[in-house]
Design a protein around this nucleic acid. Sequence first.
DNA 1: ATGAAAGCGCTAACAC
DNA 2: GTGTTAGCGCTTTCAT
Lengths: 329, 329
Amino acid sequence: MSTSIREVARKAGVSTATVSHVINETRFVAEKTRQRVIDVMTELDYTPNFAAKTLRSQKTFTIGLVLPDISNHFFTSVVKGIEQHLDQKGYQLLVGNTDENVDVEIEKIKTFQAQQVSGIILASSAENYEEIEPYLNQETPTVFIDRIPHGANVDYIAVENEKAVYGAVQRFIDLGHQQIGMITGISKLSSTQERMNGYRRAIEHSQLQLDESLIYTGDSKFEGGYKAAQQLLKNTGITAMFVANNLMTIGAITYLKEQKVKIPEDIAIIGFDDYEWAKITDPPLSVIKQPTEEIGEKAAEILLSRSHVPALETESFLLPTKLIQRSSC
Amino acid sequence: MSTSIREVARKAGVSTATVSHVINETRFVAEKTRQRVIDVMTELDYTPNFAAKTLRSQKTFTIGLVLPDISNHFFTSVVKGIEQHLDQKGYQLLVGNTDENVDVEIEKIKTFQAQQVSGIILASSAENYEEIEPYLNQETPTVFIDRIPHGANVDYIAVENEKAVYGAVQRFIDLGHQQIGMITGISKLSSTQERMNGYRRAIEHSQLQLDESLIYTGDSKFEGGYKAAQQLLKNTGITAMFVANNLMTIGAITYLKEQKVKIPEDIAIIGFDDYEWAKITDPPLSVIKQPTEEIGEKAAEILLSRSHVPALETESFLLPTKLIQRSSC
DNA sequence: ATGAAAGCGCTAACAC
DNA sequence: GTGTTAGCGCTTTCAT
């Protein structure tokens, strides 16, 4: 049992109100009294009880983060940005993994709300907003990252997916490629669809023919990329391919290497998401780099501002990406 | 303001005690009453207030995780294991990043304890146990992972570092290498020292001469690996090198590639930590693979068992590693 | 410039 | 089989 505010008050010869006020700097306390209280606190090694504080004030100073895959480097890097901002503001971070499962996602959201988190950052696996909307209560500000369910009018931080992919495919076209494969992620996600749109638009704006058979839907994991590359190689005559996420890029290249396909001579590749590893692959990978930590920081920033002053209107931030040219295209 | 247990009780025509008992299944309630209470709860969409529960019961069902670098894939993968186990047991996960800073680490520990977490999982950056021991209170079970401060007699989950590196260096020796470089991590960490010992022992047990100039201490980050490789190449005649963590491995190889050093012909390499990426590097990387998710799961398991039944004696688990042979040696 | 005290929502000992 | 109620440790209103 740790010491309570009452003990501190007694030992310092003041009321609990005064102790509370010196802790929170919430009303004036004479310097002499203040110092005495502080001394007693350090002497007793007093730490305020968090649960009591929360129960009374209805403020937890913790935010909940719901993620589809915490071991994916993209998200991890976002977490780092979030943690940084939160730490600086004295907030705690609660993390939940969903494995892209909407039911699990809903469970985590509910639990976080029962904990009265100050806000939630959510990379949702829901296709439509209605699936999760009933579980998002009004009092808990929520900001979405990376993907956004259809029909959601919410605060949202992501990147310019369409523009990014448009640029990458444009690069392929400039290089003279005519058959450009596309390996996309889980199809219901907005991020996937935006990336697809970037691909389509780039093809359409060129004199090339859009060929649906060059598009392969993966599962956003290693396996999906591997299989997609396999299918694309067997069934089409592509000379270039764009892969819409990091894990799938590794999978696709793994297959290509197994088949002794030369990159970029036989097949040129551009992947999504950067990582130090991409510098030492064979060949070094050209990728679209997302400002991952910034996504996290911005999300945390918006969320905290919402929890202080409720939003009048929702905001979206689409951060710019960067095409990093190495040797795979 | 969400509905309270009192409202539920009133609407169901029972006492708060009964409601509490149906929620927690903590004493018998007649089926009819039980059903009525449940109906009212769903009708009102009632969720117990977490803070009140915690304040009263002194149980949070959340555990705190303190990590040096949440964006390092090794830790991320450990987190996944932890989350999995915790989720299954209905526990929450609070995460804190320290950037290898002991002061930050202490802050996080203190905060977690103020929150009365049920336990802490700690990858400490402290060299000696005394640095953090004063902040670890008796009531909060703590299990250490990956590294352990000197002089700590605590629950601990890690891998057989010494044995792992011994095996890797042995492999180099079997291959005929005589000048084997070693790039180690932050020197105060137990994991670093154990890996160093594996290197030393392997050299000593062979007919080779231990040459301290072949050992270079990095910072466990990309930069450290890069610089270490640079120094080793300039100043020594190594034909092989062991790199004691994943980020440094990438750094070292990046430098080697810049210098057009051929791997493994000019320099053979074995790294620490596996990742899908390692399959597609140039050349595919031979590495020591740690059972990362298992480390997390085991840590969570031990921690929860401790929080139910205090430990009589501390336990250590050193999980086995695996040398994965690809083409870099 | 400070204190007294109510009450946040829950659990559990005690009572019947 | 269920109810009454004290009290967990804090914040904050009202008083002085």
